[in-house]
Design a protein around this nucleic acid. Structure first.
Length: 585
DNA sequence: CTAGGGTTAG
C-alpha cells in the first residue's frame, strides 16, 4: 500500500486519485468494522455467539463506502439483494493492481525515454545516466540498468568503477552470478578495472549461494591480479566459513590476509561479532563471552549489532535474565535497541512460553517508537497459538490491521489453524474470509488448516470438497493434505477411500511419508485386514524412512487382540533392537 | 563522504 500511496501522490490523473480515495475509504471502513464486528464482539464475549459472516461485515463496509454492491453487479442471486461483496473487492483489487502496474510501466518508460532521447548530447547528461543506473540497481531493476550501460558503451562512454560496482552488487544480491561474471569479464577487457569492492561483492555473491570454494578461488584471482583483499573481504569469507562450521579455517585465513596490519587482526567489531555469533550458534557460550570481553577491553564503543548478537546468544541458551541485563546495558550506554533487538527478545520469550513478558516487551517497543514488523507479529501469534490462546493471538492480528499492516499468509494460517485445533470451525472460516477480503491469497497451509478443522468437526465431505476447491484455485495438495484425508477416511472405516487417495498420490508423484503409512496401517488393522497392514509395514521398512513407535504400537495391539503372542513378542524384540527410549507398549 | 562486511522467524 505504501507503494500505492507514493504512486498516487506523484500522479495527478483523476482516475488514480479516485482509486486512491476509494482505497483509503475501503481500508478504513474494513478496519473499523472488522474490529467492532468480528473481534471485539464475537471473540471477547466467547461462547456460542451467532456467527457474524463476512457478508455482514463487508455489507456494512460497502455501505459506508457508498459502494452499493448492486451498482457493480447485476447478478443478484441473493434474496436479500446484496450481491457478493467479496467479488466487488476482488474486482477492486485487480483494478488497483492493473492501474498500479500500468502507472509504474508508464513512469519507467518515460524516464528511460527521456534519458535515451536527450541523454547523449553532453557530459552532464552522462552523469545523469550514471545516477539512473545507480537508482535502477538499488531498486533491483538490473535488466534495465544493464541495458542503459550497454547504450552508454555503444556511444563510446564507459561508466566508472563506482557505477559498475553498483551493477555487480545488484546482480550478486539477486543471485544472478552469471551476469555478474559477464560484467566483470567485460570490465577486465574494456575497463574500468575491477577494484577490491568489485571483488568483494562478487565473493559475497558466491558465499550467499553457498559456493565458498568459488569464493576462495576468487580471492586468489584478485590477489594474482594485484588487488589486495581488505578487512571487508576477510569478514565476508570468515562469515561464510563460520557458517560452514569452519571457524578455525576462518580465523587462520584472517591472520594470513591481515598479517601486515599487525595486531589489528582481532580488534574489528564486525569480525568479532561474526565470530561471537558463530560461537553462540554452536552452543559455545563461554568462547562467545570471551570474544565479547576482548572487544569490550580494546574497543570501548560496542555497536548495535554486537549487542543484538549477544542478546540473541542468551536467548538461544534460554538465559533471559542475561538477555535483559545486556539490553539494559545497551540502553545505559546510549545504544538504542532496534527492531532486531526487540524481535530477538520476543522470540526468546515466545519459545519459553513467557507470554506475559511478550506483551510487556511489545508494549515497550511501541513506546520506544520501534514499530513491530511482520516478524514480530509472526512470533507473537505463533507463541500464543502454541499455548492454546488463539483469542489473544487474534488480538495481535487485529493490532496489525489497525496499523494498516496486511499480515503475511503465515500469520493468517497460524490463527486459522489455531481456531481449527480448538474446535472453533466458524471462526477458522471467518478468519479465512477476512484474509481473502484483504487480498491475501491462501496457500497449501491455509487449506490444510481448514481441512484439519473440517475433519476435527467430523465433516469429512466438506474436507474433500476443500481439496477440490484448492485445485480450482491452482493450489496443489501436499503430503500433509493427503495424510489428513487418508487419516480421516481410515477413522471413518472407509479404507477404500484412503487407498484411493494413496494411489492417487503415488500416481501424481508424491512421496508417502511415515504418517501416510501409519494411517493406512491403522486403517487396515481397524478393518481386521492384518495381512494388508503387514504388507504396508514391510513397504514402510523398505522405504528407508525413519519409523517411530506408532506403527509398532498399532501392530502389537492388533496382535494382542488376535491372541498372537508370538507375533507380539517378535515385533517387540524388533523394536527393542532399535535401542530407542519410547516404548510402544 | 557517495560502491563492499556482522544480528531477528518458518
Amino acid at each position: 500500500m505504501a507503494a500505492f500511496s507514493i504512486a498516487c501522490g506523484e500522479s495527478s490523473s483523476p482516475l488514480h486519485i479516485l482509486i486512491f480515495r476509494l482505497w483509503n475509504q475501503t481500508i478504513d471502513s474494513i478496519k473499523l468494522n472488522v474490529a467492532n464486528l468480528l473481534f471485539t464482539s464475537r471473540i471477547r464475549t466467547d461462547d456460542d455467539i451467532k456467527p457474524c459472516s463476512l457478508k455482514n461485515i463487508l455489507g456494512v463496509v460497502s455501505d459506508q463506502c457508498q459502494l452499493r454492491t448492486e451498482d457493480w453487479f447485476s447478478n443478484k442471486n441473493n434474496s436479500e439483494n446484496e450481491g457478493d461483496p467479496r467479488a466487488v473487492f476482488n474486482v477492486l483489487d485487480s483494478m488497483l493492481k492493473e492501474n498500479l502496474d500500468r502507472l509504474k510501466m508508464m513512469r519507467e518508460s518515460i524516464s528511460l525515454a527521456r534519458v535515451g532521447l536527450m541523454g547523449c548530447t553532453s557530459d552532464t547528461d552522462y552523469r545523469g545516466h550514471v545516477d539512473v543506473i545507480r537508482d535502477l540497481c538499488l531498486g533491483g531493476k538490473l535488466g534495465v540498468a544493464l541495458w542503459l550501460r550497454s547504450k552508454m558503451i555503444q556511444k563510446g562512454i564507459v561508466p566508472d568503477v563506482l557505477t559498475h560496482n553498483y551493477l555487480v552488487n545488484g546482480l550478486c544480491k539477486t543471485g544472478d552470478m552469471q551476469k555478474a561474471d559477464c560484467v566483470i569479464r567485460e570490465m577486465v577487457e574494456i575497463g574500468p578495472t575491477p577494484n577490491c569492492v568489485t571483488y568483494n561483492a562478487f565473493i559475497k555473491g558466491y558465499c550467499d549461494i553457498d559456493d565458498v570454494d568459488k569464493a576462495l578461488h576468487l580471492l586468489s584471482t584478485m590477489v594474482s591480479t594485484g588487488i589486495r583483499p581488505n578487512r571487508v573481504t576477510c569478514n565476508i569469507l570468515v562469515h561464510a566459513l563460520c557458517k560452514k562450521g569452519l571457524v578455525g579455517v576462518g580465523t587462520k585465513l584472517l591472520g594470513e590476509i591481515l598479517a601486515d596490519d599487525e595486531g589489528k587482526a582481532t580488534s574489528d567489531v564486525i569480525t568479532s561479532t561474526i565470530l561471537m555469533d558463530s560461537c553462540f550458534k554452536s552452543g559455545d557460550t563461554i568462547n562467545a563471552l570471551d570474544i565479547w570481553e576482548d572487544i569490550f577491553h580494546t574497543n570501548t564503543q560496542m555497536d548495535l549489532v554486537a549487542y543484538n548478537v549477544l542478546i540473541n546468544g542468551f536467548c538461544l541458551s534460554r538465559d533471559m535474565n542475561f538477555a535483559y541485563k545486556y539490553f539494559c546495558q545497551m540502553l545505559k550506554r546510549g545504544t538504542l535497541p532496534d527492531i532486531f533487538t526487540y524481535n530477538t527478545l520476543l522470540g526468546g520469550l515466545c519459545k519459553q512460553g513467557k507470554l506475559d513478558e511478550v506483551c510487556y516487551v511489545y508494549d515497550v517497543m511501541l513506546r520506544a517508537g520501534v514499530a513491530p514488523d511482520q516478524i514480530s507479529y509472526k512470533m507473537i501469534v505463533q507463541g500464543f497459538c502454541a499455548h492454546g490462546d488463539v483469542v489473544k493471538a487474534s488480538e495481535f492480528l487485529l493490532h496489525m490491521l489497525e496499523k494498516s499492516i496486511v499480515p503475511e499468509p503465515h500469520i493468517w494460517n497460524l490463527i486459522i489453524d489455531g481456531y481449527g485445533r480448538c474446535g472453533y470451525l466458524d471462526r477458522a472460516f471467518s478468519v479465512r474470509d477476512l484474509m481473502l477480503s484483504f487480498g491475501v491469497a491462501p496457500n497449501v497451509f491455509t487449506f490444510n488448516a481448514l481441512i484439519y478443522a473440517k475433519i476435527k468437526g467430523g465433516n469429512i465431505f466438506d474436507a474433500f470438497s476443500l481439496k477440490k476447491e484448492m485445485l480450482l484455485n491452482n493450489i496443489f495438495p501436499d503430503v500433509v493434505t493427503y495424510n489428513l484425508l487418508i487419516g480421516a477416511s481410515c477413522n471413518m472405516g472407509q479404507i477404500h477411500f484412503a487407498l484411493q487417495l494413496y494411489h492417487e498420490m503415488l500416481m501424481l508423484g508424491y512421496e508417502p511419508d511415515l504418517i501416510t503409512y501409519t494411517e493406512l496401517i491403522r486403517g487396515q488393522c481397524m478393518k481386521g485386514n492384518v495381512k494388508e497392514a503387514e504388507e504396508l509395514f514391510a513397504k514402510l521398512q523398505k522405504s528407508g524412512l525413519h519409523i517411530d513407535h506408532v506403527p509398532f504400537q498399532i501392530l502389537i495391539m492388533t496382535y494382542c487382540k488376535m491372541r498372537k503372542p508370538d507375533m507380539v513378542y517378535y515385533l517387540y524384540q524388533k523394536w527393542l533392537a532399535r535401542d530407542e527410549r519410547v516404548s510402544p507398549l
